[in-house]
Computed example of a mutant assay.
Amino acid sequence: MDDTELHRERILRHVSPIITGRFIGYQASYTREVRVGRPLAVSVYVAAGIAQLLGSLLRMKPARRSLKELRMGPEFLVTPVRLRDDLGQTYEIEMHGQLPQSALHRGDLVQVRTEPQKDRTLPVKLMQVVNLTTMQPLTPRIPTRWSHLGPAVLLQAAAGLMVTGLLVAALLR
């Protein structure tokens, strides 16, 4: 190996749930989609459909979304974060969601709590970070399945379940 070759920094995968080190920086962000399970999507879709049917009889405007739209879950931002520990080793962690721009600066001493992801080929996921330089605890915020379904569809589903429950109770008397 001669001196003209570029030296590539070795990125490690950390297995401990707590990593303490210096914040190096963010890498290029991208989006990832969370799928909504078929049973949940179908049950919400059917219950909301019952409420939509009742609403159409009462001339109310329903919030319509297809089953395919419900199954395609929310997209969230994934940002690889790099840290360097006291031994000079570099670690890459995935941050799902966003933090305020002013939360972390290059060189800040941070302590992160991580969890392994379902896909073991991916780096660990950042759950919480404490900026030890400013003593500020930070938690990235990501959209959930419930926020993706939306309040209008969830309210329609709840109304549909109540109507179905009342009909079943009336028929069983």
Results as ranks from 00 to 15, higher is better:
1 M>P: 00
2 D>H: 09
4 T>M: 10
5 E>A: 05
5 E>P: 00
8 R>Q: 02
9 E>G: 03
11 I>T: 07
13 R>D: 07
13 R>N: 07
14 H>P: 00
16 S>P: 00
16 S>C: 07
18 I>M: 09
20 T>I: 06
20 T>M: 09
24 I>T: 07
27 Q>G: 13
28 A>F: 11
29 S>L: 10
30 Y>E: 06
32 R>F: 06
37 G>C: 02
37 G>F: 04
41 A>L: 09
42 V>I: 12
44 V>A: 07
44 V>L: 11
45 Y>T: 01
47 A>L: 15
47 A>G: 04
48 A>V: 11
51 A>C: 15
51 A>H: 12
51 A>R: 08
52 Q>N: 13
53 L>G: 14
53 L>N: 06
54 L>A: 15
54 L>F: 15
55 G>L: 15
55 G>M: 15
56 S>K: 13
57 L>Q: 13
57 L>Y: 14
58 L>A: 13
58 L>G: 06
59 R>G: 09
63 A>M: 14
64 R>K: 13
65 R>Q: 12
66 S>Q: 02
67 L>D: 01
68 K>V: 07
70 L>D: 01
74 P>H: 04
74 P>I: 03
77 L>C: 04
78 V>M: 13
78 V>K: 05
79 T>H: 10
80 P>G: 09
80 P>L: 13
81 V>N: 10
83 L>F: 15
83 L>W: 09
83 L>P: 08
83 L>V: 09
86 D>N: 13
86 D>S: 14
86 D>K: 15
87 L>C: 09
88 G>L: 11
90 T>Q: 14
94 E>G: 00
94 E>K: 07
96 H>C: 08
97 G>F: 05
97 G>S: 06
99 L>W: 04
102 S>W: 08
103 A>H: 06
105 H>V: 13
105 H>R: 15
107 G>V: 13
107 G>P: 11
108 D>Y: 04
110 V>Y: 03
111 Q>P: 01
113 R>K: 04
114 T>H: 02
116 P>F: 09
116 P>L: 11
119 D>E: 07
120 R>E: 10
122 L>Q: 09
123 P>R: 08
123 P>N: 11
123 P>K: 05
125 K>L: 11
132 L>Y: 01
132 L>M: 05
134 T>H: 04
134 T>V: 02
135 M>V: 00
136 Q>R: 12
136 Q>H: 02
137 P>D: 03
138 L>N: 00
138 L>R: 01
140 P>Y: 02
142 I>P: 00
142 I>H: 03
143 P>Y: 09
145 R>S: 10
145 R>M: 12
145 R>I: 14
146 W>P: 00
150 G>H: 05
152 A>C: 09
153 V>Q: 08
157 A>T: 06
157 A>C: 10
157 A>S: 15
158 A>M: 14
158 A>H: 03
162 M>R: 11
163 V>F: 15
163 V>P: 05
164 T>W: 13
167 L>H: 01
170 A>R: 12
171 L>Y: 04
172 L>Q: 10
